[in-house]
Design a protein around this nucleic acid. Structure first.
Lengths: 363, 363
DNA sequence: CGGATCGATTTTATCGTTCAAGCCTGGGCT
DNA sequence: AGCCCAGGCTTGAACGATAAAATCGATCCG
């Protein structure tokens, strides 16, 4: 026994080693190791005896020792952003959960860290990787001019990103959600429900995600030949509920108001719903609203929303990281796949706020 | 050099070992170790030479090796809950961030894992601890009849809890937020602003947190001698915005409506605000609303809210874990403190929705 | 002047696991 | 009989860091 005491231990403690198991089963360390890692090398009878000892003692292989020997910590690092007062509906928690779950399926865990800015984040990533604390890291919310991918590539840290930079084609793996396709599908849905004048509530131009969502609306409206009828029905403001309410009220006061809007976020969408009700309209019957991100708030108020397939993103990113570090371990160049570039299509979740119109508007 | 190549390495790689540094500085491994862990044992000149080699090579001590030797992984485990569709405003992300930040201050990290239920959670905690992957774990959202603390105590896993069980006095460390004091302080605030008829919007009886928040309102109203005037002004419903709107509208339609309400959550509070506006009242001028949890939504709509000191909880829990595992390492009984039992008082954040009345109601 | 002392550094041993090589036994082949 | 081989298991070494012990000079003191 490693710990000096004799007799059965009531609380097995963190220190049941492979030698303890070996002694209990009357075999050597290596045989125990073989039972766990290459069972076919061990005679069935011995295997059974060892397995019993393992479960009797509650043996868990020490991860530090295993990491040290295999030089793979079976961990991926990910920064957790502070909950910013301005940010209303974050999907970071969903992402982290998805990542943790995907990792768990292949005995990997997520290590959290914090940072005050992008530079500190890449520094910490590099330090964690050099320290062998993680075999790779994940970048969350990568934007078009994000410096982080470049920095990590330069540092040689294996990583995959949720989101992508403008010049993302080269050098690193990413998965992203097609925001443009999301708002476009919302427009298609509303057109199919009979709407012709469809507005858009968005963020001020300049944010990548916001612009992509605005572009999806614009392109889809154009495709349906509805841009002329919806002249200047896209309005922009901050990502707050009151902003959504104000923008929506502004649209409803126009001479030819829209009969539906696509909002760039659930926050704006929820705000819009209030303005709609305030104008005496019934959401889902007289007027339709679609939000974005499918946050719990959308569920709560029955707001149709575009749901990002975060769980899928988590799985893809985790699988890609395993491939990256695995490939490095095998050979440096085994040809085949280079890196992951995957654009996922979000899915519209239809709720009461955009149920098909009972009467066609104006009909 | 560990890796077989010669010459300066462009990407230092994860495998710069203490021996590489020692060779570069022309000293032995142990001297490098001393420079890093006990600098006073090394002559200033040597120390400087070693430090230069450390930064030249970008050396980071290998965490697995350090864990193995010190038998302390410098990690704490915490389950991340799935984002439940029903849960509207979670503070789990704030908690995880606080925990990660508090840990980082003392070179500890947070390891995330998922579980489908409480039993699986304790199993995973035990396995992680036995594997030496974490030195302790954190329980989030512990409720009065939670089985987890008992199970972890039985398994001998060091832990600290956010929240507490009904019979929490024994055996384990926790930090919790005094929900009762929170709603009570909201009542005090509203009374000081001149309100006399103050309502309460809460969850159906049976949830610990909900009951505590309801009790805070009740006790404070009684203390101010206002219960008679506020006869049956506490109403209950689901934790959704629409529920908040409905309940608020119900109260406003009473013959003697309240002039203010305390809501058990921001979700209910935001819902209530809409009902208030719908009745032609101006929040903060004609009517006051206070929410709970200070979620980003409250900031967005200017809702006064009771903020849980999560950052403080994170710091306390992390400090307690360090004490627990440190004590274990030193001696088993070094007397002094037993375990942490800390009830923190939340803080009211006053915003426009409950700014002091300009004219006393009814005056 | 010899032994003690002290500071600075090196050597040794160890944490728990796994890879590589070694050893033993019994059976099949010549 | 002697030889080889393969299956089944054990021993030795290594991963990287560090506490403890050993070494080596140099200084000090009786």
């Amino acid at each position: 026994m490693t710990a000096g005491t004799h007799g059965p231990r009531l609380t097995p403690g963190p220190s049941v080693t492979i030698s303890d198991v070996a002694e209990a089963a009357g075999v050597s360390r290596q045989t125990v190791s073989n039972v766990l890692n290459a069972p076919d090398r061990v005679r069935a009878e011995t295997r059974e005896r060892v397995n019993r000892a393992v479960s009797d003692l509650g043996y868990q292989p020490n991860r530090a020792a295993r990491s040290l020997k295999s030089s793979s910590p079976r961990m991926v690092g990910c920064r957790i952003l502070p909950v910013h007062a301005g940010t209303v509906a974050s999907i970071q928690d969903r992402f982290l959960h998805a990542l943790a779950e995907a990792g768990q399926a292949c005995d990997h865990h997520v290590l959290l860290f914090t940072a005050t800015d992008a530079d500190e984040e890449t520094e910490r990533c590099t330090a964690l990787w050099r320290a062998g604390a993680v075999s790779a890291v994940v970048l969350y919310d990568v934007t078009p001019h994000d410096p982080r991918p470049r920095q990590l590539v330069a540092a040689g840290v294996p990583f995959a990103a949720f989101g992508r930079t403008a010049t993302c084609v080269d050098g690193y793996s990413w998965a992203d959600v097609d925001n443009t396709a999301g708002t476009a599908s919302a427009v298609d849905h509303l057109v199919a429900a009979g709407h012709r004048r469809i507005g858009f509530l968005g963020w001020p131009e300049g944010s990548s995600v916001g612009d992509a969502r605005a572009h999806g609306w614009l392109a889809a409206m154009d495709r349906h030949g509805l841009l002329a009828q919806s002249h200047r029905l896209d309005v922009r403001g901050d990502d707050t509920m009151s902003s959504g309410t104000r923008l929506m009220a502004e649209l409803l006061d126009r001479p030819e108001p829209p009969t539906a809007v696509v909002a760039a976020t659930d926050t704006l969408g929820v705000g819009a719903l209030h303005a709609v009700r305030h104008h005496g309209l019934r959401p889902g019957e007289d007027f339709a609203v679609v939000g974005f991100d499918d946050t719990p708030a959308a569920t709560a108020v029955g707001l149709s929303s575009i749901r990002q397939p975060i769980e899928e993103v988590g799985r893809l990113i985790m699988a890609e990281l395993l491939r990256l570090v695995g490939r490095n371990a095998d050979k440096d160049v085994d040809g085949a796949a280079d890196s992951l570039h995957r654009l996922l299509v979000p899915e519209l979740v239809v709720r009461a706020s955009s149920a098909p119109l009972r009467r066609a508007p104006g009909g």
